[in-house]
Computed example of a mutant assay.
Amino acid sequence: MTAKKRNWVPATLSEFDGVRFLHLDSIWVQGAMRIRKPDQLELEYIQRMCAWMLWRDEAELGQGHAVQLGLGAAALTRFSLGQLKMRTTAVEINPEVIAACRQWFRLPHDDARLEVVNGDAARWVTDDAHLQTANVLNVDLYDHEAESPVLDDEDFYAACRGVLSDGGLMTVNLFGRSASFARSALRIARVFGSDQVWSLAPTKEGNTVVVAARGVQVPHRDVLELRAANIESRFSLPARKWLRLVRPLPMSILNAL
């Protein structure tokens, strides 16, 4: 699947204090990579996009298929492919972003475990060929103005749920000058069910990560704490902090269901 030809917003770069940033012809950061530690997840909200790991059994962390909708600077793609050793698919509509990631952000070329699709995420998730094919789905879809998610309605989230296998997990970055967390979270909860949706407290930059599951039984707190400690040990991610920040959706949203 290839995106139709159009005048794409060019990908631009900046560097500061050892970190390379991806922009789409604006001041807004679309992704980042520490140049000397390319496998490290640099941005806090990108780290939190891995909070799905708390809901997944330790033995299953590196199994299955991970999908990213929106490539950014390829941080999550590199992580799921290189650190978790999962089969990985990334869907990115802007070919300029893919080219920048290949040249400047250590994105490998496609092989048996990696497929980078230059295409529309909305079309990808509604393709019947992708039904129940993903164990993990990371959704981070913003244009160059970063005002609100470019795909954010119930039909889209229903298609995302359809892509997940039983027990699959989705994380969504909700951020933007015009975005409404309550509006977006309500749409996700209507599709996944209120008992299958959680959120983390916002980062200082304003990113709120939502976790949604397809038929996951929430483990006991003791199990979650053990998983968090294991994630920190294996991947140097602040999973115990995630656990402190995870919460059910607010009652104001649940009452609107």
Results as ranks from 00 to 15, higher is better:
Arg247Asn: 09
Gly72Ser: 12
Ala129Asp: 04
Leu224His: 10
Glu205Met: 08
Phe21Cys: 02
Asp155Glu: 13
Val125Thr: 10
Leu174Ile: 15
Arg227Pro: 09
Leu174His: 01
Met1Ala: 15
Val246Gln: 07
Phe16Ala: 15
Val97Gln: 06
Ser14Cys: 10
Val218Gln: 11
Lys85Thr: 10
Val116Pro: 00
Val91Phe: 00
Ser236Asn: 15
Gly70Val: 05
Lys4Glu: 12
Gln40Val: 13
Pro149Val: 01
Arg187Ser: 15
Asp57Val: 02
Leu114Ile: 04
Gly119Pro: 00
Gln196Arg: 06
Arg214Trp: 06
Arg214Ser: 07
Met1Val: 13
His220Cys: 12
Ser194Cys: 11
Leu43Trp: 02
Gly72Pro: 09
Arg221Val: 12
Gly72Ala: 12
Asp152Tyr: 13
Gly72Ile: 07
Ala66Met: 02
Leu164Thr: 01
Ala100Val: 03
Thr203Phe: 00
Asp17Trp: 11
Phe192Glu: 07
Asp143Met: 07
Trp104Arg: 00
Ala59Cys: 09
Phe181Val: 08
Leu131Gly: 13
Thr88Val: 07
Asp152Lys: 15
Met33Gly: 00
Cys101Ser: 10
Met49Val: 03
Trp8Pro: 04
Ile35Val: 15
Arg214Gly: 02
Trp198Gln: 06
Glu232Pro: 08
Leu71Pro: 03
Pro202Asp: 05
Ala112His: 14
Tyr142Gln: 06
Phe235Trp: 13
Phe192Ser: 02
Pro95Met: 09
Ser194Pro: 09
Arg48Met: 02
Met53His: 03
Asn118Ala: 07
Leu61Arg: 00
